Amino acid sequence: MRLIDQLHRWIGGVLGILLLILGLSGAVLVHRDAWIGLPHAGDARVADPVALGELTARLMADPASRPQSILFASDTLGLVRLSGKGGSGAYADQSGAIVTRWSSQWERPELWLFDLHHHLLAGDVGETVIGIAGAAGLFFVISGVTLWWRTRKTFVFRLWPARMTRPAVLRHHRDLGILVAPLLLLSFYTGAVLVFRPFAALTLGPGAPAAIQGALKPPAGSKAALSEQIGWRAIVATAHRRFPDAELRLVSLPRKGSGLITVRMRQPEEWLPNGRSTLWFAADSGALVAARDARALGWQAKAFNLFYPLHAAKVGGLGWRIAMTISGLALALLGGFTTWSFWYARRRTIAQRRV
């Protein structure tokens, strides 16, 4: 038990500030669509396939300003987001008129906050660090519950330490941690598995990582260049004929020379905000190459597709957003006070003992 206690303290002391950053940024991002606050952000989503085809054709028409991808309006945000190279982009209304542009993600708080939460503003390296923090968080929750059990009779519900002394902060840490342990366990696990897919085996079985990889793998493309004669209206119409009940979510140009235009759609029963029902079209002819229905995926892939909506509160309405906000704020408190008690209050206590 002493070893568990020491590991809990030292790993927490090292990662405390990182947990504070993840908790605060996550709590803010949960409500991202509500605070963007641009004109037309509150517009109702346009669902007509003909109108969406016209919108896509208009936005993709000019090679000089053509976006790399189009993220269509949703039920919670009435703006269309255009993503370009080097972090550039724009928001447009659902007629295609540009509302605002940016040349860097630093000009849009929702973009750099997302990058901070998911990549620590450091690309793949930052994402790996985030995954490690999520894995460490699982240890924090399990070891914290184990350590709390010895002192359970002293439990007091308190949102803030009674005093800013090390013993009071440590007691607050234990009691707050046990209150939010289920939410933190979910947040840490879903966050870790989104970075390190082998973690999916813990809940979905040993074959889950391979099943998920297979379900997300795109078909082989012809490496053809994008033609200027692509019929964007026809592509959108074909996608809606293939999945008539689905919501158009994303159109993306070929990446890494794949030669495939990607269209993602969201079936009514899908929780994932951008769906996993995917169609691929040849970049040179616009012909349909392959289509994958999210409803036909194996149960492990379907279960994996639930992790992000749960983690980001993209399902469950206001009630679940509040729950995940509490999780984020509690994580920020636990991480911040852990850092303070381990690096500052602990040294001050040791120094006082030496006097």
Rank of each mutant, 00 (worst) to 15 (best):
A133E: 01
T146H: 12
L82E: 01
T154C: 10
A135N: 10
A92S: 12
A97C: 03
R152D: 02
F157C: 13
F139M: 13
T128Q: 14
G96I: 00
P67G: 10
R158P: 08
L147Y: 01
A97T: 11
A90P: 07
E107N: 13
L116F: 04
F155R: 12
L82H: 01
S69C: 06
R150W: 05
I142R: 07
T100R: 15
F139W: 05
L138A: 14
L121S: 03
A90R: 04
G126L: 01
S83V: 15
I130M: 13
G126R: 02
V156H: 13
S104D: 14
G89Y: 02
V80G: 14
V129F: 02
D75F: 04
I70E: 06
T151M: 10
L113R: 06
A135D: 06
I142F: 06
S74Y: 05
A90K: 04
Q68S: 15
W106E: 07
G87D: 03
G123P: 00
G78V: 05
A73N: 09
K153P: 06
L147V: 03
V125S: 01
G126T: 01
G87Y: 03
V99K: 09
I132H: 08
G78Q: 08
S69A: 15
H119A: 11
F139Y: 12
H117P: 09
G144A: 10
A92W: 00
F139Q: 12
S83K: 15
R158E: 10
A90N: 06
